[in-house]
Design a protein around this nucleic acid. Sequence first.
DNA 1: TCGCTTTTGTTCTAAAATGTTTACTTATTC
DNA 2: GAATAAGTAAACATTTTAGAACAAAAGCGA
Lengths: 255, 255
Amino acid sequence: MLKRQRLLTIRNLVDRKGIVTVNEIGAELNVSTMTVRRDLAELAEKHAIIRVHGGAQSPKLAQKQDQELSRLEKRDLRVEEKRQIAAQAAQLIEVGDTIFIGPGTTNEFIADYLTLPELRVVTNSLPVFDSFKSKADRYELCLVGGTYRERSGAFIGNLAIEMLEHLRTTKAFVSANGVCDSIVSNANADEGQIQRMALNNSRQRYILADHTKLDTEDFYGFYSLDDVDGLITDTSIEDEQRSDYSKLTHIITSE
Amino acid sequence: MLKRQRLLTIRNLVDRKGIVTVNEIGAELNVSTMTVRRDLAELAEKHAIIRVHGGAQSPKLAQKQDQELSRLEKRDLRVEEKRQIAAQAAQLIEVGDTIFIGPGTTNEFIADYLTLPELRVVTNSLPVFDSFKSKADRYELCLVGGTYRERSGAFIGNLAIEMLEHLRTTKAFVSANGVCDSIVSNANADEGQIQRMALNNSRQRYILADHTKLDTEDFYGFYSLDDVDGLITDTSIEDEQRSDYSKLTHIITSE
DNA sequence: TCGCTTTTGTTCTAAAATGTTTACTTATTC
DNA sequence: GAATAAGTAAACATTTTAGAACAAAAGCGA
């Protein structure tokens, strides 16, 4: 059997079974485990599979599993990047601002980096609201109500839309699940709709997305990078991406 | 079996059963208890499960239990009366209702006595909302947003008013701080204003007040007993008061 | 066929994962 | 509240897997 064929077979095997052991592959194809490891390393380099100790996993499955994680678990994913991004966002905020902060685990860290004495904060996310609650004595906190979406802890629906309609903010910070070709996207249409309105109603608009979100897209596209004032991301962004996206908007990272 | 798979299996097991012992997991997966412990430690770090002595439990279940505990711990003033009143209020609620529940510690107990399968719940109180959060999978929860008032945990102001304006409910439950000569009153004008609107927009209207509130009045009168369907109070009400107030509205107590 | 490259297998060492023993801590029972 | 049982975690032993180094085999063009 040719190497080319074998690689393809392994790929199919992994995709079909979701997760396979090195030994299984070796037995199936009658090759040594060392060969399998070398093949897996090659495929992993091309992101065709994900290497795990003892075998390999299909990227599709891994992505699906990531999506199924609870809010609390997602919060723990790539914390450093999230904190970096949140800190950058916080630095943009000035005294006298009225800021909107959308749902998303990244946004839950922004409050940690805010030291300003006075501020008005608007959000439709209960976790974000909670992160500001300890500052309720200094800041005016405004929660956008509506129907509760348990999965993300956000308030959505017509009531939320109607309430947001009249709110003008100076700066809006919205997290994206995907940023691809100037399109900013999200997993949920109801939430995307609100985020679009929040951005439209703001003088300055910022999109928050860690480097893993760049060049990927999710279900619902809700905004265009052309219309925002900045894309806040972490320092792991690749040079090529930096130059690509800087044509569309201002890239904001630490350093 | 790969470690990855095992971790996933354990997570599912915990989620499904709510709580599992280390031994159960070990037997199920044919691994030593030490391995299970190590796995649980790893999952606990990622907040996928919560470690307890002898096993693990799902975060969802833990949250539910925590909430009930904190409610029990509310060895506040007159908890028994409040529970009595809350239970009475809950009994009035029927399938298909859209209910409004105002702020107030009494109202935070209503969720405990609700066993209906389906309901739509509207509130402008964060603590009340929290008391319903564990039921979010069955009930449609709608929070009236607005400016946060830390003192009572309620959302108030123009935004709240505007949002509530369009909401029609079948039953409204509002706590009063004082009931005197048919006047229902409250400590705060902003909250009273919202409560008045919530009552006006409801088909059926109920005032909740324990016996110590009767024949007393507070700063802001927001409603008249003539216009409500019932005054829910505890059994410590005096006969004289019962006959006085029953001329104005229907008195609801347990027995 | 020869000489060369590429691929594969083998061996070995390090790292990771798992199991076992043991001392210790936490619950439970009387 | 002391005795007993159950659970925990550190230390060590064992097994499994990873990856490097090198040897053997296969493919390939002259």
